[in-house]
């Protein structure tokens, strides 16, 4: 069974001219026992997607299943989920500990030792009896994580969990999440707007941009990906016509033809072109690393 199965979800905010597709027909499957990263620039729709996973907002279209149950039909399934969305939110006038006790009671937990336990996990025990309102950003974030872990959930949905943490805190968070997944069989879905973070932490990832998923897959294969060849040939229209039945032509520019293919395909491509009377000037593997891909996305350069 999938941990999360998102089918065709769309969220439209506003009406008329100010209508915005915050999330636009996203499909996603997140398997159990892994860390899944949602990577995207600010405003990409990560938070909106996660809110729909948690039934906090109603999708304009589509549905979300968690462990096979539609979150809008079976509320109880969310009790197996721990979450932190858009930073930690607590009552500023209560201490960190009281805020957690309150959540534990709301959840119906009987073992209040669990509160101390999660405070230890996030290393907040010594500040637990100060008011949440006095906490630094990093401490707030830690308490948020403690809240998410409180009921020992099977699935964690964490929206930019490392925001506001210092490098040490980020490292601890990374180790903690890895440990939860590798040694305790949990599943984590988290979002981030920095590639390096996702790269280090997750097993699979989806890049989300303007409400759509623009790339998805296993982190290793995405990182080593070099899927394009740049070909300078003349006449280029004919080259395109010859190659397009077998390889996907991504782009035709004055620089040449960009083809979705690997370096192993180069001899076959050369042969096909020569056999059809096309002159070849260059065939160069065009490496597009995940990083440059993501940079293109975040710089708003819509060449995709």
């Amino acid at each position: 069974m999938h941990a999360i199965e998102i089918s065709d979800i769309t969220k439209i905010y506003g009406k008329g001219k100010r209508r915005i597709h915050a999330v636009n027909k996203i499909n996603l499957i997140i398997e159990q026992g892994q860390i899944y990263g949602l990577l995207g620039p600010n405003g990409a729709g990560k938070t909106t997607a996660m809110r729909m996973m948690l039934n906090l907002i109603r999708p304009t279209q589509g549905n979300v299943r968690i462990y096979g149950d539609d979150v809008r039909q079976n509320h109880a399934i969310l009790r197996r989920v721990g979450m932190m969305i858009e930073g930690a939110s607590f009552y500023p006038y209560l201490t960190g500990r009281k805020n957690l006790i309150l959540l534990a009671r709301t959840h119906g937990l009987t073992d209040m030792n669990r509160v101390n336990r999660v405070l230890e996990i996030v290393k907040l025990s010594d500040r637990a009896d100060q008011r949440f309102g006095t906490y630094s950003m990093g401490m707030k974030q830690r308490l948020g994580l403690a809240g998410a872990l409180l009921h020992d959930p099977d699935l964690l949905i964490l929206d930019e969990p490392t925001n506001g943490l210092d490098p040490n805190g980020i490292l601890e968070m990374r180790l903690l999440l890895r440990d939860l997944v590798d040694n305790h069989g949990k599943t984590v879905c988290f979002s981030s707007h920095t590639l390096s973070e996702v790269e280090r932490l997750c097993d699979n990832l989806a890049i989300i941009h303007k409400g759509k998923i623009v790339r998805e897959g296993n982190i290793e294969s995405l990182l080593t990906e070099q899927t394009q060849l740049r070909i300078k040939a003349s006449p280029s229209e004919k080259a395109s016509a010859v190659l397009s039945p077998q390889w996907r032509v991504c782009d035709t520019t004055t620089d040449g033809l960009f083809l979705e293919a690997t370096a192993d395909d180069a001899p076959h491509i050369a042969r096909a072109l020569v056999n059809n009377g096309v002159d070849i000037y260059e065939i160069i593997p065009h490496r597009q690393s995940l990083e440059s891909f993501f940079l293109d996305v975040t710089s708003g350069d819509d060449q995709l």
């Binding site: 039934n55 969310l78 989920v81 858009e86 930073g87 939110s89 607590f90 009552y91 709301t106 009921h151």
Partner: peptide
């Protein structure tokens, strides 16, 4: 309104049905 202002509804309604809360 404090629950909206502090953003705390989400902590509660993921744990219990909204009508109960």
């Amino acid at each position: 309104a404090g629950e909206y202002q502090h953003g705390t509804w989400k902590n509660l309604i993921t744990r219990r049905p909204r009508w109960v809360i």
